[in-house]
């Protein structure tokens, strides 16, 4: 039943499609790496927030008949900004009662934050079904608004691989989003504060910075990135429904651990790696369940061999080089 198709074409295709997919899914995981890796909040609501943003943008896009403002490449910016406001709400309703005044995160607080975000997540999932006049699954037309010039074709052929232009665009935007997140986390004083609060909140208050404020900042950044990447995910997949969450969430957790907790670039590379492995297996075997099993088996192996994350070194090297230069 299971037959391998070991051809050059399949391998090329696997790598190209995998890179495109990985870039998008990697950017989706970045919000999680910030809130989990840095603030030690196991955010089970992450996938729900991503899907919520995707559903919202699809709903607006279809309601306004594909108006320019609501096309994914533009919507991801302002929905990301909206996500910042949503992050404040998320922090004060869910996280603040649990970790607002905690100095160092122990297992106990990790568990409480996990529970709280679980509650928030299922409530957010449930909201999709109680809004009136709101259909539970959407499909958007990616050719509208951002088909790049060429007459009538929504795809390009590159090295014999048929690629949809919209997915290329989304992966480029995913890369940009990663760069922005990297810059915010590593090159600004905000990023410094965020990393400091994770180490020792009390020490931070000694130097005159309100740790609660920094925690809000972290949650806001993570939620904004999650919502922005949700729109990119919609642009990539072109269709969305609330149950997608059960596919997105495990993948995000896997990617974050693969990339090393708290490392933005590591997470992005983790996403690329996972995407390539998934697509290669899919192309070679033609069986999606085998491809997914391989993706998760990689995680298991990677974690046992290198528990700090396979790609966590990338960020260190980059910042080291930057300092030298």
């Amino acid at each position: 039943m299971l037959e391998l198709a070991l051809t050059g074409g399949a391998i090329t295709k696997g790598i190209i499609m995998g890179l495109i997919y990985g870039s998008v899914i990697g950017s989706v995981a970045i919000g999680l790496t910030i809130i989990w890796g840095v603030m030690k909040v196991v955010n089970l609501a992450h996938g729900h927030i991503v899907v919520f943003a995707a559903m919202m943008s699809a709903f607006l896009y279809l309601t306004y008949k594909g108006a320019l403002l609501f096309t994914p490449p533009i919507a991801f910016i302002w929905i990301g900004l909206l996500g910042a406001a949503f992050g404040v709400f998320f922090y004060y309703t869910t996280l603040h009662p649990v970790i607002g005044h905690v100095d160092t995160m122990t297992l106990k607080y990790e568990m409480s934050s996990l529970m709280a975000t679980f509650g928030f997540g299922i409530a957010l999932y449930g909201i999709h079904y109680i809004l009136p006049n709101y259909v539970h699954s959407y499909s958007v037309n990616p050719s509208i608004g951002y088909s790049i010039g060429a007459a009538g074709h929504t795809y390009i052929v590159f090295l014999g691989v048929v690629i949809m232009k919209s997915t290329v665009l989304m992966s480029v935007l995913g890369f940009l989003l990663t760069l922005v997140a990297y810059w915010l986390m590593n090159k600004t004083s905000m990023g410094l504060k965020i990393r400091a609060v994770a180490q020792d909140a009390r020490a931070l208050s000694l130097v005159g910075i309100n740790p609660v404020k920094v925690k809000v900042m972290t949650a806001v950044l993570a939620t904004a990135l999650a919502m922005a990447s949700g729109v990119l995910f919609l642009g990539y997949s072109t269709s969305v429904y609330p149950d997608i969450e059960s596919t997105v969430s495990p993948l995000c957790f896997v990617i974050v651990v693969l990339g090393g907790l708290g490392s933005v670039l590591g997470t992005y590379f983790g996403g690329l790696f996972l995407g390539v492995m998934y697509w290669l297996t899919l192309e070679l075997t033609g069986q999606q369940s085998i491809a997914l099993a391989v993706a998760f088996a990689i995680l298991l192996i990677a974690m046992v061999l290198k528990p700090d994350g396979v790609f966590s070194g990338i960020e260190r090297k980059l910042s080291f080089r930057a300092k030298r230069g």
Partner: peptide, 24 residues
């Protein structure tokens, strides 16, 4: 293999285990 890991790493590795078995 995975019980050498601790905390969150163990937790996530079990997600991996779960989904590998599920898809197989």
């Amino acid at each position: 293999a995975v019980l050498r890991l601790r905390g969150a790493f163990f937790a996530i590795s079990t997600i991996g285990l779960d989904y590998v078995v599920m898809y197989l």
